[in-house]
Design a protein around this nucleic acid. Structure first.
Lengths: 228, 228
DNA sequence: TGATCTAATATTGTTGACAATAGTCCCAAT
DNA sequence: ATTGGGACTATTGTCAACAATATTAGATCA
């Protein structure tokens, strides 16, 4: 049983990232180094290293001699992310269809059936659905076997997406529809039809993006115009 | 005249990145912290922060308690990068065609004419051609106005591409062809034809990728098969 | 001769103190 | 009353020493 060697900076990095994503540390909040170090029981050295990493995944922004703040989420940024996801996950789906092993494909199908069951059980509304969605996309990305693609998506972007879901309460209000789209994508992958898988995935993410834009309008309409 | 405030870690980070890209620090080489710190005249604290950042842009890999090494370049990784570039820069070209200002478009065209002149002058073979190519792509990416896309491409991927060009001497052996493709892309952008710009950009990068694969085969063929 | 254990060395991880910069608060002057 | 300046505080940036881990070299035994 090999115990994974790690460092204080790593562990604290993970904890802080989790706190940021779940909103324990609010967006836009200033990060005070001595305070954070005290909270996590380490000194400022490793803490600063952890913060460098968190900065690299763009969860915080740092200004020299001033300090670090948690990023402020906006619908605009979220749309940017979804544009990129559409492109990259389309690619991932195509590659996955071409290179996934039989075992990987059957595991993906298994995941979908369990999601289906879960949606029926909870009548289509549950927190778990969100993480399930991430799972599905996560597996396809890994199925692409393109390590850099995997790192870009699973490493950074999905963290952001999870953060938005937590804090904008972006639970999909169309779980059945999403599941159906997942099912189509899965079928295309099973059949090794890369082109179709890519097309379906892009449409799937574009649908989600449109969904976000609708919500965005609904939320900004009541205030009706910021400048007369 | 506002002097940009910065930190030792930042400055040293830039210098080390440059050394890695240009091969002053060879691929696969171990990075010794005390030695590096001495060379750059700083202590290990800021140096380690710089290294964290360099790790984040995947120019080095770190193992806890063991140390950091410069990444080893491989054709496989390069192909991975080009797959991603094809996807993302296709997107960037489409967005650029839709959102670039008149001024940006004319500057892009100006850049191309200067490239054309330069190719004629040097009869199609020069180091500058490489950086010129980066310039062209760089501008289109910025024209997309998608800040996250800009960061992903200009921040990390292009650094890698430049590193490969330096160390694999990947000078394009088809500068006239590349210029022609650039010209087509530029025209599509000028006309605001996003779909065409995307398609052309994807084909352009795919061509470059095929070019790399050819060279890769030519280089590995002589050894003929690693396992009988 | 070769392998394995052990001690010595080098390198990385961590800490607390010091220096430099930015933010604040209070006071005075118009 | 408001604005400008200056001292004070808080926070970030940097350093050098210490602790923990990995690597290396040498010695011992089969």
């Amino acid at each position: 049983m090999e115990v994974e060697a790690t460092t204080l900076a790593n562990k604290v990095c993970d904890r802080i990232v989790k706190d940021i994503i779940t909103g324990v540390i609010a967006q836009g909040q200033k990060l005070n180094e001595p305070e954070l170090a005290r909270i996590h029981g380490i000194s400022r050295g490793p803490l600063r290293e952890a913060m460098s990493r968190i900065e690299a995944m763009r969860l915080i922004t740092r200004v020299p001699n001033v300090g670090a703040r948690v990023v402020k989420l906006s619908y605009g940024e979220l749309l940017e992310i979804y544009q990129i996801r559409e492109s990259l996950e389309g690619l991932a789906a195509r590659l996955a269809a071409q290179t996934m092993s039989v075992q990987e494909k059957s595991e993906l199908r298994l995941l979908l059936t369990s999601h289906h069951k879960h949606i029926l059980d909870t009548q289509g509304r549950s927190y778990f659905q969100q993480e399930g969605d991430v799972d599905f996309h996560y597996r396809i990305v890994h199925g692409s076997k393109n390590q850099r693609l995997i790192d870009m998506l699973a490493g950074d972007l999905y963290q952001l997406v999870r953060m938005y879901r937590y804090q904008f309460s972006l639970s999909s209000n169309r779980p059945e529809q999403a599941l159906k789209e997942h099912d189509q994508i899965c079928s295309a992958i099973e059949e090794g039809d890369g082109e179709l898988a890519e097309w379906l995935m892009k449409r799937h993410i574009n649908n989600a993006r449109n969904n976000i834009m609708l919500r965005m309008q609904a939320q900004s309409d009541p205030q009706l115009g910021e400048t007369p």
